[in-house]
Every structure is written in C-alpha cells, then in structure tokens.
C-alpha cells in the first residue's frame, strides 16, 4: 500500500460532490471547484483499487499454548 487512503471516506466525499453538482442553483466557481475535486477523487479511488494491498500480521497469543 503506497498511501494510507480511506476508500470509504473518499467515496462518500465523491457521492456528496456528485449530489452538489446536480443542484441547479450552484455558483459557477463552486461548480468548478467540485468538478476538479471530483476528478481528483476518481483518480485516487482508481489508484486505490489498482494498488492497495492487504497486510497480514500474526499477533503473539497471550494465552498459554502449552
């Protein structure tokens, strides 16, 4: 895993932006800002799906394994 990304949080942010972009009273500056942020999010989420790997660690059991 190259970067510590929270897929769920980013995905939720993208959903919010998409909903905002559907408003018809949106200021053009806001719309542009949302649009650019949306493109960044799509890229980051795609990268996550392509590259994120799982990490497995064994914890030493504290119980007696006699």
């Amino acid at each position: 895993m190259t970067k510590k990304l929270d897929y769920q949080a980013l995905s939720t942010e993208l959903d919010t932006i998409m909903a905002e972009l559907q408003r018809d009273d949106l200021d053009v500056d806001e719309a542009l800002k949302h649009y650019e942020r949306g493109l960044t999010l799509v890229k980051e989420l795609e990268a996550y799906l392509e590259t994120a790997e799982n990490k497995i660690t064994e914890l030493k059991a504290t119980f007696n394994k006699a």
Binding site: M1, L5, Y7, Y48, L49, T51, A52, E53, N54, K55, I56, T57, E58, L59, A61, K65
Partner: peptide, 12 residues
C-alpha cells in the same frame, strides 16, 4: 479488496 490490516491469532 486491498488496504486491510489483518491481525491473526493462531489458535487450535
């Protein structure tokens, strides 16, 4: 899926 940390405790 990816990006999950899995901690394992080995048991019988």
């Amino acid at each position: 899926w990816g990006g999950v940390q899995i901690d394992v405790i080995d048991v019988q």
